[in-house]
Design a binder for these strands. Structure first.
Lengths: 198, 198
DNA sequence: GTCTATACCCTGATAGAC
DNA sequence: GTCTATCAGGGTATAGAC
């Protein structure tokens, strides 16, 4: 029964991920999630005592998967700065559900009173810090120009990832993430290879 | 009374803009909007017969303001490609309410069943087309390299704008839009000035 | 663990008086 | 034009049986 309980909770998290990704927090309903997982609503609330705690469960659960993927990329020893960037997009393209969860939820979360507002503020701060640290060492070891504001560059990279995801999710037939990001990578590369002039 | 009716409708649209921008479509409520505008809920529904039609009213109303701003920038005769880009951000920074409305709503609208899904799909398609046309002439007249996929460049520019808005709205104390976009502008400029080599 | 039953509130929307 | 009254429905959450 103990092993059963764990898989039940994970099944709930998986289904809830899809529902929050499609409808956002306010649009999703506990009854629909419960039904999709083969439970009644009070049955669902046995595992997560409230809707907010279910959302937090989903976010934490998915954040783990996301983080470990990012870390795996950034922590490779001999990876170049630009293959790391490209890997980032490839990873995202593999997991459209996860990407959509975060893209949909972050919009709603701009409201400071939203239950996941703080989660996303912290998430972005941590992500920027991780990436700045990575680029700091990579840029030096690869001999790029050193007069670049890495903090701004990282903000920009994340912006490109998020922005491409929006257009791609909204209109998958018209927008492709990898191509757009490849162009961006080239822009960055060209710029970083230039000698610090002015 | 006819003049009164028009200002009433505009007052409703203004208040509704704020509420949809803060809470999204599902999070906002008609009663809260009605109260904020000094009306009861049925009073509000006299002007907009349903919540969906109110949202469409808000979106159309705000889209006008937005479009005319963009057009004013793109249609200046002698403007350079890069001052046009920078103007885009400056305009956005002036109207945080409008920016937040579209940023919050586009997240929710990724769901194809969302009442404003089609609106945003069309909006982005039209925006990309407008910008591609603009860049086509500007790039030639300014003598930049011609081997660039303008469609991809435009996707990228919009992505940067959207992505910067997310980080800025989420954490205004930590992220500044203009600085990040200035860096992006430099990246693009450096790239476009390079001779078509490979 | 999972259910039935239910409380309770809030939602969008309509009917009809004024 | 704007209101009161009201409806049907759905939302989260709890109590308590099994």
């Amino acid at each position: 029964m103990t092993t059963q309980r764990r898989s039940r909770k994970e099944a709930i998290l998986q289904v809830a991920t899809e529902h929050f990704a499609r409808h956002g927090f306010h649009g999703a309903t506990l009854s629909a999630i419960a039904e999709a997982v083969g439970l009644t609503e009070p049955g669902l609330l046995y595992y997560f005592p409230s809707k907010v705690e279910l959302l937090q469960g989903v976010l934490d659960y998915r954040d783990q998967a996301d983080k470990s993927k990012y870390m795996a990329i950034l922590e490779q020893d001999k990876i170049s700065l630009f293959s790391a960037l490209q890997d980032l997009v490839n990873v995202n393209q593999e997991r459209p559900g996860l990407v959509q969860l975060f893209t949909v939820m972050v919009g709603e979360s701009i409201n400071p009173e939203h239950p996941s507002h703080d989660f996303f503020v912290q998430r972005y701060r941590a992500l920027r810090k991780t990436m700045v640290d990575f680029f700091k060492t990579a840029a030096v070891s690869e001999g790029y120009r050193t007069d670049v504001d890495l903090e701004q560059l990282v903000v920009l990279i994340i912006a490109v990832l998020d922005g491409l995801q929006i257009q791609w999710l909204l209109d998958p037939g018209q927008v492709e993430m990898t191509t757009g990001f490849a162009l961006f990578t080239r822009l960055v590369e060209t710029y970083l290879e230039k000698e610090p002039s002015d």
